Lab assay of single mutants.
Amino acid sequence: SRWTEEEMETAKKGLLEHGRNWSAIARMVGSKTVSQCKNFYFNYKKRQNLDEILQQHK
C-alpha cells in the first residue's frame, strides 16, 4: 500500500527517535506493519535521505 506524506513524516520521526527499531516505528505510524516500515526504509532510503536521518539518531 502507498505511503501518505503523513505516514512518511511519522516514519522519519521514528527513525530519528528509534533508529532501526522497526516495531517501534510501526507502532508510531500505526497504519503500517513492521515489515512495511522496514521496506519503506530500504525503498525510500535514497529518495528521502533516510541515512542522514538515521545518523542523527542517538
Score class of each variant (00 low, 15 high):
residue 34 V to C: 07
residue 17 E to D: 09
residue 57 H to K: 12
residue 2 R to H: 14
residue 53 I to L: 11
residue 11 A to W: 11
residue 8 M to H: 09
residue 34 V to Y: 04
residue 43 N to I: 09
residue 2 R to C: 06
residue 39 N to S: 10
residue 19 G to L: 15
residue 25 I to D: 02
residue 1 S to W: 15
residue 27 R to M: 12
residue 41 Y to G: 02
residue 53 I to M: 11
residue 44 Y to L: 10
residue 8 M to N: 09
residue 26 A to L: 12
residue 46 K to N: 12
residue 36 Q to N: 05
residue 18 H to C: 03
residue 54 L to C: 08
residue 23 S to A: 11
residue 33 T to I: 15
residue 2 R to W: 09
residue 35 S to V: 06
residue 46 K to W: 02
residue 17 E to F: 08
residue 34 V to A: 13
residue 5 E to Q: 09
residue 38 K to C: 06
residue 34 V to S: 11
residue 17 E to T: 05
residue 8 M to S: 02
residue 49 N to S: 10
residue 42 F to V: 12
residue 50 L to G: 13
residue 21 N to R: 02
residue 58 K to Y: 15
residue 30 G to Y: 14
residue 39 N to I: 08
residue 44 Y to M: 06
residue 29 V to S: 00
residue 2 R to L: 13
residue 23 S to R: 09
residue 14 G to P: 06
residue 53 I to Q: 11
residue 25 I to F: 02
residue 8 M to P: 09
residue 52 E to N: 01
residue 20 R to F: 08
residue 44 Y to Q: 08
residue 38 K to Q: 09
residue 9 E to G: 03
residue 48 Q to M: 11
residue 16 L to D: 01
residue 4 T to D: 02
residue 46 K to L: 04
residue 43 N to A: 11
residue 37 C to N: 01
residue 32 K to N: 00
residue 20 R to G: 07
residue 42 F to L: 11
residue 42 F to Q: 13
residue 24 A to R: 08
residue 52 E to K: 10
residue 27 R to V: 05
residue 29 V to F: 04
residue 17 E to V: 09
residue 38 K to L: 03
residue 27 R to T: 12
residue 39 N to H: 08
residue 48 Q to A: 13
residue 22 W to G: 03
residue 44 Y to E: 15
residue 25 I to Y: 05
residue 35 S to Y: 06
residue 27 R to P: 01
residue 47 R to D: 09
residue 29 V to E: 00
residue 25 I to P: 01
residue 46 K to C: 04
residue 5 E to T: 11
residue 6 E to N: 07
residue 46 K to T: 12
residue 19 G to T: 09
residue 27 R to N: 11
residue 31 S to C: 01
residue 42 F to K: 15
residue 25 I to M: 08
residue 37 C to A: 08
residue 14 G to M: 03
residue 6 E to A: 14
residue 2 R to S: 11
residue 22 W to A: 01
residue 28 M to F: 09
residue 31 S to Y: 02
residue 10 T to M: 11
residue 57 H to N: 04
residue 54 L to R: 09
residue 20 R to H: 02
residue 42 F to W: 11
residue 45 K to D: 07
residue 36 Q to S: 09
residue 45 K to Q: 03
residue 7 E to L: 11
residue 22 W to E: 00
residue 44 Y to N: 11
residue 14 G to S: 09
residue 10 T to F: 07
residue 1 S to R: 15
residue 49 N to R: 11
residue 28 M to R: 13
residue 26 A to R: 01
residue 49 N to L: 07
residue 23 S to G: 12
residue 49 N to Y: 06
residue 22 W to N: 00
residue 44 Y to F: 13
residue 3 W to Y: 10
residue 57 H to M: 01
residue 26 A to I: 13
residue 35 S to G: 11
residue 5 E to K: 12
residue 27 R to E: 05
residue 28 M to Q: 13
residue 13 K to Q: 06
residue 36 Q to H: 10
residue 53 I to F: 07
residue 29 V to M: 08
residue 2 R to N: 15
residue 5 E to P: 07
residue 7 E to K: 10
residue 41 Y to M: 08
residue 51 D to A: 10
residue 25 I to A: 03
residue 40 F to H: 03
residue 13 K to I: 14
residue 50 L to I: 05
residue 10 T to P: 07
residue 6 E to I: 05
residue 7 E to V: 10
residue 30 G to H: 00
residue 50 L to C: 07
residue 15 L to G: 00
residue 47 R to E: 15
residue 14 G to K: 07
residue 16 L to H: 05
residue 17 E to L: 12
residue 41 Y to R: 03
residue 46 K to G: 09
residue 26 A to D: 01
residue 39 N to C: 04
residue 35 S to E: 14
residue 42 F to I: 13
residue 51 D to G: 07
residue 37 C to P: 00
residue 18 H to Q: 07
residue 20 R to I: 08
residue 50 L to M: 06
residue 35 S to L: 12
residue 9 E to R: 05
residue 20 R to D: 14
residue 24 A to Y: 03
residue 25 I to G: 00
residue 42 F to E: 15
residue 18 H to F: 08
residue 28 M to D: 04
residue 10 T to Q: 12
residue 53 I to Y: 12
residue 5 E to S: 06
residue 11 A to Y: 15
residue 26 A to E: 01
residue 35 S to M: 10
residue 40 F to S: 01
residue 3 W to S: 13
residue 1 S to M: 06
residue 41 Y to H: 01
residue 39 N to M: 11
residue 15 L to A: 02
residue 3 W to V: 07
residue 52 E to S: 09
residue 17 E to P: 01
residue 39 N to D: 14
residue 50 L to K: 04
residue 35 S to P: 03
residue 30 G to S: 02
residue 36 Q to T: 11
residue 32 K to A: 03
residue 52 E to T: 11
residue 38 K to G: 00
residue 25 I to H: 04
residue 52 E to Y: 06
residue 34 V to M: 07
residue 28 M to K: 14
residue 7 E to H: 08
residue 31 S to D: 00
residue 55 Q to R: 09
residue 2 R to Y: 14
residue 8 M to C: 00
residue 54 L to T: 10
residue 26 A to G: 02
residue 8 M to E: 05
residue 15 L to E: 01
residue 16 L to N: 05
residue 47 R to C: 08
residue 8 M to R: 07
residue 15 L to C: 05
residue 33 T to L: 14
residue 28 M to I: 05
residue 28 M to P: 00
residue 51 D to Y: 02
residue 7 E to M: 07
residue 55 Q to V: 06
residue 4 T to W: 03
residue 28 M to G: 02
residue 13 K to C: 03
residue 26 A to Y: 00
residue 18 H to Y: 03
residue 27 R to L: 08
residue 3 W to G: 09
residue 4 T to I: 05
residue 11 A to Q: 00
residue 37 C to Y: 00
residue 33 T to A: 09
residue 23 S to M: 11
residue 24 A to V: 09
residue 23 S to L: 14
residue 13 K to W: 06
residue 49 N to V: 10
residue 3 W to T: 09
residue 35 S to H: 10
residue 14 G to Q: 04
residue 55 Q to H: 14
residue 43 N to M: 07
residue 11 A to K: 13
residue 45 K to N: 02
residue 31 S to G: 05
residue 25 I to R: 05
residue 34 V to N: 02
residue 29 V to H: 00
residue 26 A to M: 08
residue 7 E to Y: 02
residue 19 G to N: 01
residue 19 G to F: 15
residue 6 E to V: 10
residue 47 R to W: 15
residue 33 T to S: 13
residue 35 S to D: 15
residue 11 A to V: 13
residue 24 A to I: 04
residue 18 H to V: 07
residue 37 C to S: 00
residue 32 K to Y: 05
residue 24 A to M: 11
residue 11 A to D: 01
residue 49 N to E: 15
residue 23 S to T: 12
residue 23 S to Y: 13
residue 39 N to Q: 13
residue 2 R to K: 14
residue 22 W to Q: 00
residue 31 S to R: 06
residue 12 K to R: 15
residue 47 R to H: 13
residue 48 Q to H: 14
residue 25 I to V: 09
residue 37 C to V: 15
residue 55 Q to D: 08
residue 41 Y to A: 04
residue 54 L to Y: 04
residue 18 H to T: 04
residue 48 Q to N: 14
residue 48 Q to W: 13
residue 6 E to R: 11
residue 27 R to F: 04
residue 4 T to K: 12
residue 46 K to R: 06
residue 50 L to Q: 01
residue 11 A to G: 08
residue 57 H to V: 13
residue 18 H to P: 04
residue 3 W to M: 14
residue 9 E to F: 00
residue 40 F to A: 03
residue 8 M to Y: 02
residue 24 A to F: 02
residue 40 F to K: 06
residue 43 N to T: 15
residue 19 G to I: 14
residue 50 L to R: 10
residue 24 A to L: 10
residue 13 K to P: 02
residue 27 R to G: 08
residue 22 W to C: 01
residue 5 E to M: 07
residue 46 K to Y: 04
residue 53 I to N: 11
residue 36 Q to Y: 14
residue 17 E to Q: 11
residue 45 K to A: 08
residue 11 A to N: 02
residue 37 C to K: 00
residue 50 L to P: 07
residue 34 V to W: 11
residue 38 K to A: 05
residue 51 D to L: 04
residue 7 E to C: 05
residue 42 F to S: 12
residue 22 W to Y: 07
residue 53 I to G: 10
residue 20 R to S: 12
residue 10 T to C: 09
residue 25 I to N: 02
residue 6 E to Q: 13
residue 15 L to S: 09
residue 42 F to N: 13
residue 5 E to A: 10
residue 46 K to D: 13
residue 13 K to N: 08
residue 7 E to R: 11
residue 33 T to C: 12
residue 46 K to S: 12
residue 48 Q to E: 15
residue 16 L to M: 08
residue 28 M to A: 08
residue 31 S to M: 06
residue 40 F to E: 01
residue 5 E to F: 04
residue 53 I to V: 14
residue 38 K to D: 00
residue 28 M to N: 06
residue 45 K to L: 11
residue 27 R to W: 04
residue 45 K to E: 10
residue 4 T to H: 03
residue 55 Q to W: 05
residue 32 K to P: 00
